[in-house]
Nucleic acid binder design. Structure first.
Lengths: 104, 104
DNA sequence: TAAACAATTAAATAATTGTTTAATTATTAT
DNA sequence: ATAATAATTAAACAATTATTTAATTGTTTA
């Protein structure tokens, strides 16, 4: 089990997560967005999978990778612990974002 | 300017942040909590400082390090973007924490 | 001014990480 | 069966990172 922190430390891996945000994708599709080779991508996916940030689905000769959304809380939880007394301002921040969204 | 992601990827550095949560501390004080040497700690502090996660204050021959709280939002912001549609459940989660705190 | 203290920087090294090319496994289509 | 496709694993390598010991800088105290 790889550390979630090491997993999100890499720029490419965070980009992968952002790409998977919209829909599940195969390694071939993902590779098109990057400048490195398929094995490099495969290695990144293995790390994300091992950190439980993505899940893998086999369908014929393809594999589909998708986000495991629950995992975000582990990181947020760290910051919550660290700045625990600051929950109100985080809530405020989130509510501001929501208000903005509603008005656009 | 070091990446905040690389900065928090290291276990020791996250521990340092947790220690600084209660009060500002000098490198000497911090060193007692770890099994590595002063130069190693100094190097971690340099990385945290460069990622703008801690600030440094010189007082005589001591230096005091303290948390820069604002920076948490940058990481939370990533997760907010990634799981943007999930804001309500995050808000709910935070509110639950607060309710629990109030009742203990 | 010299000795002691707090902390950093420098140089060296071991371990880890991201990447490549080549080889391998598994599945589908002809 | 054979060829083609999707993806992985293996082996090798370059770059980065965490750490150590030794040397250095700056500040206080005797």
């Amino acid at each position: 089990m790889e550390s979630i922190w090491k997993a999100v430390a890499d720029d490419s891996r965070r980009e992968i997560l952002m790409l998977l945000r919209k829909r599940k994708m195969t390694p071939s599709e993902l590779t098109e967005h990057f400048h490195f080779t398929a094995p490099a991508l495969s290695s990144h996916l293995r790390i994300l999978k091992s950190a439980d940030l993505v899940t893998e689905e086999k369908l014929g000769k393809n594999r589909y990778y998708s986000l495991n959304e629950k995992k975000s809380l582990e990181i947020i939880n760290f910051f919550e612990k660290m700045w625990g007394y600051n929950l109100n301002s985080l809530k405020e921040y989130i509510e501001n974002k929501e208000r903005k969204k509603r008005h656009e």
